[in-house]
Amino acid sequence: MSKSRQPRKQSKQPRGTSNSSSPDPLTLADTTATTAASRIRLELDRDNPAALTVYVNDVPSSYIDTANPANLGFEYLEVFRDIIEDRAPLAERFTHLGAAACGFARAISASRPTSTHIAIDIDGELMAHARTWFALPRAPRLRLRTADAFAGLRALSDKSADVIIRDVFAGATTPSALTTDEFYRTAIGKLRAGGLVLMNIGDRPPLTQTKREAATLLREIGPHAWVGVAAETGVLKGRRYGNVVLAGQLDSGNDPAAPALSRTLRSHAQSVSLLTGSVLTDFIAGAQPIDAPAIHAVPATP
């Protein structure tokens, strides 16, 4: 996962009480586990003793508030949620690529109790641990699938998802196979009418990766779609490394400027800027879409 994914500092809160099916977070503090793919460590939030950060290979990867599923901990996940609430308020079918401990799936499931979620992660043992530790919803509300993210995405039925979320990292970057035109075409093909894709990009100045992925999405999603890029203002201005959210929605007839969403994002503790329409076009000017490498057949040996 991206090393920029430090949980947001929470204000001091009264100690919450977990529901009866969840473990006491104090008993999980300092828990460690090793899977075939990862080293996992749970660390108690010093400002909120009902919450834990899940570290995967020493990188903060999920935040679980056992008393308040809505507390996401990471700023970019709050941006994801705001975009979903604004652009896809009726969305019910969610696919999570790079689910880790399923913190985001847990939060959306709590706020949309009739929603269903497919969580795809290469580390199925981690997801299984999370289901035990945090009393995650069971199937069919939350299905866990162990797979490479792209392979898991391909296996989905076409036009089966309302929202697809990509939050996959190898170290500080997204695997290159998940950034190409082939990946974006595949994801778009899995969306229902009005469906939404959300991508978390860890990027640094001059935001070349963000601009190229945005150019790729704009080319692949078609002329009647809505596309936006959102991040803390300092990140978008190229001042530092950080998380950038790239979003695209099929068949959107809404105002491309999304003024209500822009106001919501600006109200975050760290103001978030949203680029859409001509402003986004100017932002990515000159950026080349990312084409998947051509695969040439090897001639048969005579």
Rank of each mutant, 00 (worst) to 15 (best):
V229M: 06
Q6T: 14
R106C: 02
A128Q: 12
R240I: 12
H129Y: 12
G202N: 12
A225E: 12
D167R: 01
E182L: 15
T95N: 01
A155R: 14
P25C: 02
T276W: 00
A247Y: 05
S267F: 08
R15D: 14
F80C: 05
D251K: 02
L142V: 06
V272W: 06
D30L: 09
L191G: 13
G189W: 01
V298M: 07
R15S: 13
V245R: 02
A161E: 15
G248V: 10
D255C: 11
I118R: 06
A214E: 03
R15L: 15
G16Y: 01
A285R: 14
G248E: 10
P25A: 05
P113I: 04
P259N: 07
P293I: 12
A51R: 00
R212M: 03
A139T: 14
D47S: 13
R192S: 11
A29C: 08
L178A: 09
R46C: 07
K211P: 07
A105Q: 05
L274S: 07
L136W: 03
R5S: 15
A100M: 09
L156M: 10
V245N: 01
Q209K: 10
F283Q: 08
A285P: 03
T301F: 11
P289T: 12
Q13S: 04
G253S: 14
D181F: 05
P259D: 09
Q6F: 01
T180N: 12
P256L: 04
D158L: 14
N19S: 13
R145Y: 04
I188Y: 04
V54S: 04
H224S: 15
T34W: 04
R141E: 11
I40P: 01
S176Y: 12
R87F: 01
I83F: 09
R143F: 00
P49A: 12
A187S: 05
D121Q: 03
P14R: 15
A67C: 10
R141P: 02
S271Y: 01
P223Y: 10
P137C: 09
V235M: 08
V79A: 07
L250F: 08
L178W: 09
G234T: 10
S160F: 01
S262R: 11
S62P: 02
P49I: 09
A128M: 13
D203E: 05
L274R: 04
S262P: 02
L274I: 05
T53V: 10
G253D: 13
I290W: 00
P259S: 03
L136E: 05
A91C: 07
I165Q: 06
V272I: 14
E85Y: 00
V59F: 07
P113Y: 00
N57W: 06
V298L: 09
G253T: 11
V235I: 15
S11C: 03
T180Y: 12
L217T: 11
I165L: 01
P223R: 11
T31L: 13
R219V: 02
R8E: 11
V56G: 10
A257F: 06
I164E: 05
G195L: 05
L26G: 14
P302D: 14
A135K: 08
I118H: 07
R192H: 08
A161S: 14
L144E: 09
